[in-house]
Amino acid sequence: MAFDGLLEGNSDQWAFGTDFDDPLAGLDVALPAALDPLEHARFCLGLADDALILSQRLAEWCSRAPDLEDDVALANLALDLLGQARLLLGRAALVDPAVVPVLPAGSPVPAEDALAFFRDAAAFRNVQLVELPNGDFAHVIVRLLMFSVARLELFQQLLSSADPVLAAVAARGVKELAYQRDWAGRWFVTLARGTSESRRRVLAALAGLWVHQAELAEAYGLSGGAVLERVFLAGGVAQPDSVVRVGGRGRDGMHTEALSLLLAEMQVVARAHPMGRW
């Protein structure tokens, strides 16, 4: 279902790499009565927007990474997150259709696209960590590490979600996030134990991004920082002091100006053609 548009129902044309799985195959998409639709849609939207916005930031790295291999790796991670965003936006739209922006009558734009491309910054529910502008390679590593640690922990809990769709999304996401965390963690240790310059950069990135850890931990319901502690220890990096969240939360629609600029670039073509078919 999720990949029908890509494969047109027929994967025979591919020389290799067939047998793609549909994470939602055969699922009952009805929301269990125990869950409140409004609250659940809001929850899915927050997780979707985190993935969508970080995916966009990672995509900006395309052709700019230090090596071809890391360029492809970052693009892969971006596409993993985009896949999570698509499923979660679709879930939010199905559970509470009121979250979907209204488009001109007869517009063929599907709900997930309407959510991604036709909402203004204040309607986005992502945490602020993911919207910050890119920095150097150490910056993307530290951001990915913080994000993947938090998201993997939550997705592991969501495997037993009362919503079968969310549980299926989590089952797929856990594998992706495990790789993402592994990749970012290895690079973190490599940079921290590399040259004095790479260590200086990774410490600078950590100092700059750590102020957003409190908001991230709150949004993802983090219980503790055991995984991060182990990575910091392996890299010989002191655990940064815990910070108190200041200012508004992205989950309430409070964002930095960086999000508006990101959205302007991401949405401009789709918004110019609200009747467009892609």
């Binding site: 790499g17 067939t18 047998d19 793609f20 492809v72 790796a73 892969n76 790789y179």
Partner: peptide, 11 residues
């Protein structure tokens, strides 16, 4: 890790 990213991304 790099081989995974460069050569197995299409399953």
């Amino acid at each position: 890790r790099n081989a995974r990213d460069v050569y197995t991304r299409r399953n």
